[in-house]
Design a protein around this nucleic acid. Sequence first.
RNA 1: GGAGAGGUGGCCGAGUGGUCGAAGGCGCUCGCCUGCUAAGCGAGUAAGGGGGUUAUUCUCCUUCGAGGGUUCGAAUCCCUCCCUCUCCGCCA
Length: 426
Amino acid sequence: MLDSKHMEENMLEVKKRLESRGAEIDFDEFRALDLGRKEIIKKVEELERERNLGSKKMGELMRGGKKDEAADLQEQMRLISEQIRDLGELRARAEEEFRNFMLTIPNIPHDSVPIGRSDTDNLEIRKWGEPKDFDFEPKDHVEIGKDLDILDLDRAAKITGARFALYKGLGARLERALVNFMLDLHTNEHGYTEVLPPFMANTESFIGTGNLPKFEEDLFKIEGTNFYLIPTAEVPVTNIHRDEILKEDELPIKYVAYTPCFRSEAGSYGKDVKGIIRQHQFNKVELVKFSNPNSSYEEHESLTSDAARVLELLGLPYRVVALCTGDMGFSSAKTYDLEVWVPSEKTYREISSCSNFEDFQARRASIRYRPKDGGKVKLVHTLNGSGLAVGRTVIGILENYQEADGSVTIPEVLVPYMGGATSITR
RNA sequence: GGAGAGGUGGCCGAGUGGUCGAAGGCGCUCGCCUGCUAAGCGAGUAAGGGGGUUAUUCUCCUUCGAGGGUUCGAAUCCCUCCCUCUCCGCCA
């Protein structure tokens, strides 16, 4: 959520920046809702003040035993109370309307974000590693998985449906090995604290991160509750500190969490239907930071390189891309995507998305900190990034490490996590 | 699932209809004292919103788990819901 005061005072600027990401906001409506709300607040508060004064007087009269005077006053007060009740309802409605409006406005892109409309306008920042030259035609991960009997998509479809996976043998082991490898790396070497959150969260949490109210169709809802399956650990982990005031000394707080992620993938029919690129359920290790606003962009850089380090240690070629204004997520002020090389497609595919939300989520979720110098409490900045999406890392390994004989070599760092296995063979 | 207790400021905790945004303690900030540390003494210390200045100050309103109700007036009484704890039952 944006700061409504800032919006009011910099309307043209904000409008321009939002348009750069393709968001058309009706500022006339904003103004009308905001002014209407303030006007009614003023009226109600004036009446409430009268009521408070009257009540105080009433207390004095009662204690002084002046019953007649008290009776007169009581009648007046009754009228005021009625008005407060009526206007109070209007006020509640006006404030809710205003808030609902504000909740649908996306974040303002940071200055450094390239302007553009779609992913074709994204900016490549850097590349790491050399895509391998195969002296045979590389297979895609579906074929590899089938041939090695480690990935069974047909049976997953039988069990549940399309866009689900069944891993088998060393395939299942590889998924688990990656989760453990990533968690160990981020906790031991990058200073993150491991958390294991609930895999469902309530409406408030989803509003906090910006997934609700606008994107309900992307989520799986649990019938008969106000719980949704999490589409990313970002939701439960960011909400760890919802409605809290942190100490400045505690910042930055850095969490890493493994969770499965559940996405309805509404609107992506026919897209990435093959293999395990796009699933209704997938595993992810997520990095989340709560940062001092002064240093959130440094934290963003380091978070991105923490995620990239996983790819480097696994020896997977990747590139870093700065998303353009038109391609960024709703809540983000700036996003880098990490993209891993996929030999069968001869292209890079997203494997991690690292974002700085500035105070957008913090304002929605009321996550603040008390400055050391004793000033007013301030909103923190929140950040997160995949470190990494596990299923897509499996794709990267299967395809980049495949051999002419159909086997797949296990990257050295993973061997201890694979029970000593150095390759997957038929 | 059954029975009971409870949710109050950054934290703990008192408070059963008006004098309560709320005692006391802890923590924190500043000052004093002190060879260092600790202790001691004094003062200050909730958040959100509206108005006014916009630099500080000022002023008003709201908030005692959430939402309704009773009342001239609710932290306090009533109802519903959420959550926590204890005991019993069941269960991974």
